[in-house]
Amino acid sequence: MRFRQRRRVFIVCGIAALSSLIACVPYSPAPSSGASDISTVPAIVDVDKTASPLPEAEPGLEPETGTWQTEWGPLTETDRKLITGVRLASLWEMPMAQDAVQRASNPKVREISKEIAQQHHTLDKQVRDVAAKLKVKLPVTPTDEQQDWMSDISGRSGSAYDATYVKWLRLAHGKVFALIGTVRGSTQNTLVRRFSEQANAAVLNHQRLLESTGLTTPESFPTPSN
């Protein structure tokens, strides 16, 4: 009888001891099938796919003709001429403005050139976005005429550099200004119309900045037509 009681006590004590050991072991659940580990490292944000290089026109490539149908309305040759024209303007005016920030002798020219360069950076992003949506190929180099202007400016120094820089940039802005007005008043493409308004605001501001230098002498204006 006593033996049975002792045996029962041993069994109860053994079970209690085993339960205590199990309770003290840390719980580590096995991951469920297919579950990914949790990380405290911030997730990497996807880059903007529109920032990738766009299809660009080969130098000397003939412009595409005709009118295209797009989800924003018909896209005419004149519409595309504005898009490529604004792109061409940035291709030479932006680097020349950056150059003038360093080389101009007139403090006012250096000041306005910094603003022009920054605005062309924004304008070039806008034109690339529009071109991507409308599948318009963009030029990759300035025209021969624009490269001649760049060479004329770069080949000068001092006050001659300042005056030549202001002259050619102002003349170029005047040329694209006329095209902007034509497209703004005629395009049936809502995306192009909105872009023409953005371009108009930028070009008008650049004209005012260039004229604020006081270097827009009669030599800076084109010869009046008869």
Rank of each mutant, 00 (worst) to 15 (best):
P53V: 05
G60E: 06
P95A: 10
L82D: 08
S33L: 14
L54C: 12
G60M: 03
P42G: 08
E77A: 06
P29I: 06
R87G: 00
P55I: 01
T65Y: 07
P29W: 13
D46G: 15
E58W: 07
G85F: 08
P53M: 05
V25D: 02
G34C: 03
A30G: 04
E64N: 08
V47P: 12
S32P: 02
T67G: 02
L21N: 01
A57Q: 09
P95L: 04
D79G: 03
T65W: 03
G85K: 11
T70N: 01
V45C: 02
K49W: 12
I22A: 15
E71L: 14
L21P: 01
T50G: 04
E56C: 14
P74T: 03
I38S: 12
E56P: 06
I83T: 06
A51E: 13
V25R: 07
S90E: 09
P74R: 03
K81N: 09
K49E: 14
T50F: 13
E93H: 03
W72I: 02
P26D: 00
P31G: 00
V25K: 13
K81E: 10
D79P: 02
G66S: 06
T76C: 09
T70D: 05
V45L: 10
P31E: 01
V41G: 06
E58C: 04
V47E: 13
T70K: 07
K49T: 12
L61F: 00
P55G: 03
E56H: 07
G85Y: 08
P74Q: 03
V41F: 13
L91G: 04
L82Q: 10
L91F: 02
A89N: 05
S36R: 14
G85D: 02
C24M: 10
L54H: 07
I44F: 10
E64T: 11
A57D: 06
P53H: 09
G73P: 09
L88K: 05
S90I: 10
P26I: 04
R80M: 06
L75M: 13
K49Y: 14
R80F: 01
V25T: 13
E71S: 15
A35L: 14
T84A: 09
S36M: 03
G34K: 12
I22F: 14
E56F: 13
P31A: 02
E77I: 05
E77C: 01
S39Y: 09
P63W: 07
I22D: 03
E58S: 08
A89L: 15
D79F: 05
Y27V: 08
A57N: 05
P95T: 07
D48P: 08
Y27W: 12
L91K: 00
P29D: 03
L88M: 09
T78S: 13
V86H: 07
S32R: 15
T67S: 07
I38C: 04
P53N: 08
T65S: 11
I44E: 04
P31K: 11
S36E: 11
T70P: 00
W72E: 12
G66V: 04
L88H: 08
S28P: 00
L21I: 10
V25Y: 13
S90W: 00
T76K: 07
E77V: 10
P29K: 09
Y27R: 04
T40K: 11
G60I: 06
T40D: 11
K49L: 12
T67M: 06
D79C: 05
S28Y: 15
L88V: 08
A30N: 11
T40S: 14
P31L: 03
L91Q: 01
L91T: 00
L61Y: 03
S28L: 14
D79W: 08
V25E: 07
